[in-house]
Structure formats: C-alpha cells, structure tokens
C-alpha cells in the first residue's frame, strides 16, 4: 500500500519538483558564458530585474496573453457548438464523433502544422482555390500573420476545448431545458440562463486547457506566424539557445509558471465550490 502511494510521489518529485528546483536555482544565478553550464549560482536578482524593467519582455508577455486569449475565445466559439452537437447526438453515434475530434492526434503535431503552412502559403492550396474559383483575384497571404497563429492554435488545441465541454454538456439534464421552455423561456434565453451556467465548469476547464499551453506556445508562432509575432515562448528560446543565458531563460520560465498558477487556482476554487453545492 505504501509503495502504491510512494510511486506517484516519487514520480512527481523526480520529474516535476526536482526540475522545478533546478530552474528556480538557475534563475537566481549569474550568466557566465565561459562556464559549462554557463551559470554561476548565487542569489542574483539581475535576471528578474531585467525581465521587469525591459519593455521588450513586457511586450512579449502582453502579446502572448493577447494571442492566447483571442485563440482561446476562438476555440470556445468553435468548440462549444461541436461539443453541444456531440452531446445531443444519438448515444450510439457519440463515440464515433469523439473519435473524429481526437483523430488529428494520431498524426504528428509538427506534420499537421506543416500542412497548414501548405494550405496558407502565398501559392498554397487555399489561395490557389480562391484564384481558381474566381472569388478573389488577389488573395492576401494568411501565412506569416497573427491570423495564421490564431488559426493554428485554435486548430491544434480544439480537442482540448471540446472534450471538457462535452463532458459537462453530456451530464446536463435536458429536461431542465424543457422546464425552461415550459416556464416561458425562448431558446436563446433558455440557453443563456440554463445551458451556459451549467456548462461553466466545462467552459473554464476547456479555456484553461487551451489558454495555458497557448501562452507558452513556440512552434505554431514560429512556423505559421510572421516575424512580428512576439511571444514569450520564443523569447525564452532565444535567451536559452541564442544568448545562452540560462538564468534569464529560467527566470522567464518561473514567471510564466507563476502567471499560469493563478488561473489554475481560481479554477480549483470554482470546482471546489460547485462540488460543495451538489
């Protein structure tokens, strides 16, 4: 029995806590390129000071937050009707529909992002189609813009939005909607006053599961985004690899972690409260 408890704990300590302590330790170090590893340990706050004083980092934070927020909202707008339709589909059909939602995971993430590059490029499939169909003579290029980044994030993380939404919508008692209608609610008010509040845990969970990885996303902005797309994940990469500045990269990682722990704690509180209610 003790072993059963000890194993996951050991796992967490070795693969989560230890690396975290390592990164925390590095973030207070001093960058020393002539050492290997290029860090002199100590209690140097210079990396954090630079993070909070240089407007480049602030701009990268804000831009990451904005991109993650817009993409999360996009994923919610697209994912909610999907989850709703699956939850209301015939029960025999639901496993198939859910499989279709997670089907893209069976292909490498990188290959799928490359496929989007092929779709969105100047001479890509989308533009070729638009020209061929005569709809648009001179379509602009989506690839390399922030739109392409949003599109990529929404596409890549949509299943993470749909699955928690589905699981909360599937539990929804549809007779509540009949009751609302019986009490005089038109379909839209019934949705807003019954379905939406009752699927709130799914909305929050789905949004967090998209928002959190989207903030630190590196591959999608690198491949689909333009050079103007500034994201904190890219900044971290640059600091670690290009500048070989491990303390600063670690400080960015620590701040990212702290920033993301906030919404998770709020979500946990919310879950706790709704558990107490029922």
């Amino acid at each position: 029995m003790r072993l059963v408890i000890a194993l996951p704990f050991a796992w967490l300590v070795v693969f989560f806590l230890l690396p975290l302590v390592l990164v925390l330790g590095l973030s207070f170090g001093t960058n020393s390129p002539d050492l290997a590893p290029p860090v002199e340990l100590g209690l140097n706050l210079a990396s954090f000071r630079l993070l909070f004083t240089d407007d480049l980092y602030l701009a990268a934070w804000l831009s990451s937050l904005r991109i993650a927020a817009v993409s999360t909202f996009g994923a919610l707008l697209l994912g909610y009707p999907m989850a709703y339709a699956i939850a209301r589909a015939r029960p025999q059909l639901r496993p198939l529909l859910l499989t279709l939602v997670i089907l893209p995971f069976w292909t490498s993430f990188l290959i799928r992002v490359y496929a989007w590059m092929g779709l969105l490029a100047e001479n890509g499939i989308l533009n070729q189609f638009l020209r061929w169909s005569g709809l648009v003579r001179n379509p602009g290029t989506i690839l390399g813009t922030e739109w392409a980044v949003h599109l990529g994030i929404v596409y890549a993380y949509l299943p993470f939005m749909v699955l928690p939404l589905y699981s909360s919508l599937e539990k929804l008692d549809w007779s509540l909607l009949e009751a609302a209608s019986d009490l005089g609610a038109k379909p839209l008010p019934a949705f807003l006053t019954v379905t939406l509040p009752l699927s709130l845990p799914g909305i929050v969970a789905g949004c967090l599961m998209v928002f959190i990885p989207a903030i630190g996303e590196f591959v999608i902005p690198d491949l689909l985004g333009g050079t103007r797309t500034l994201m904190i994940g890219k900044v971290l990469w640059d600091e670690f690899f290009t500048n070989s500045d491990w303390p600063l990269a670690s400080a960015v990682a620590i701040c990212l972690l702290i920033l993301l722990v906030g919404p998770i704690v709020i979500f946990q509180r919310h879950q706790q409260r709704s558990l107490e209610r029922t």
């Binding site: 480049l56 701009a59 050079t227 103007r228 640059d238 290009t242």
Partner: peptide, 11 residues
Amino acid sequence: TRLWTAIKTGR
C-alpha cells in the same frame, strides 16, 4: 539579440 528582436517585431 535585443536589437534584433526589436527590429523583427517592428518596435
């Protein structure tokens, strides 16, 4: 690197 990032992102 900083100068480079500033140039790329157009700020």
